[in-house]
């Protein structure tokens, strides 16, 4: 599903920062992979390159047989909307939208007519069927993160990227989120790549990729 070859990311400046130093990785379809490592190891930077949120300095990234680094900016935006899902650390919901609107909006932007029903179904799936019309500020952090997960699934993404999705959650909510990821992975065969620094999260994933100083540890 994902093939990464020799990915390099260098932030230029007076003192260049070598965030990724030639990273290669293969992720199979339906695999649930955790990227782990210390703070500053490059795991979030790596995820951002794969999720097309940033552009690497060198290397190749293929997602579902598409060489995504050759896409134009417009094509990348469209690719993100159609094929990728995101869950961020800080919930990242639109404050003025209800839970239901936050979930169905990406589908609406794709022009899909039955998005509301599917969004309601996804919110039901993440156990928020009773909070459809609540706004983010009316929900707990764990609930908001589950709304974000439901949103990430609305367009049936090929890959779901999650960047430290439980960093701001308590232990119970964190477990709920990872159990949800596990369920999505098993039931929907959803490919998931998650960045986390909590060792106990290893129990939920198929594979852990350890990073250190911009490279994958063998």
């Amino acid at each position: 599903m994902i093939s990464v070859k020799n990915l390099v990311k260098t932030y230029l400046g007076e003192v260049p920062t070598y965030a990724l130093k030639g990273v290669s990785l293969e992720v199979a379809a339906g695999e649930f992979v955790a990227l782990m490592g210390r703070s500053g190891s490059g795991k979030s930077t790596f995820l951002h390159q794969l999720g097309l949120l940033d552009t690497p300095t060198e290397g190749e990234v293929t997602i579902d047989s598409v060489d995504v680094l050759k896409l134009s900016e417009t094509e990348r935006t469209r690719f993100r909307l159609e094929h990728l899902g995101y869950v961020f650390q800080e919930y990242a919901l639109i404050a003025e939208f209800t839970a239901l609107e936050n979930v169905y909006f990406p589908a609406m932007a794709l022009g899909e007519g039955e998005a509301k029903d599917r969004a309601a179904h996804l919110l039901d799936l993440v156990d928020l069927g009773s909070r459809l019309h609540h706004q983010p500020h009316e929900m707990s952090g764990g609930e908001q993160q589950r709304v974000a997960i439901a949103r990430s699934l609305i367009n049936n993404p090929k890959v779901l990227f999650a960047d430290e999705p439980t960093a701001n959650l308590d232990t119970e909510s964190s477990a709920t989120v990872f159990q949800l990821f596990q369920k999505l992975n098993r039931d929907l065969n959803q490919t998931i790549l998650v960045v986390t620094h909590e060792p106990e999260d290893k129990q939920y994933v198929d594979r852990v990729v350890w990073m250190r100083d911009g490279v994958i540890e063998s």
Partner: peptide, 16 residues
Amino acid sequence: RRQIGILKAIGIKESI
């Protein structure tokens, strides 16, 4: 800004 960034991240076009 953050909301605009989120919208762009999930694939909403700048023009929208």
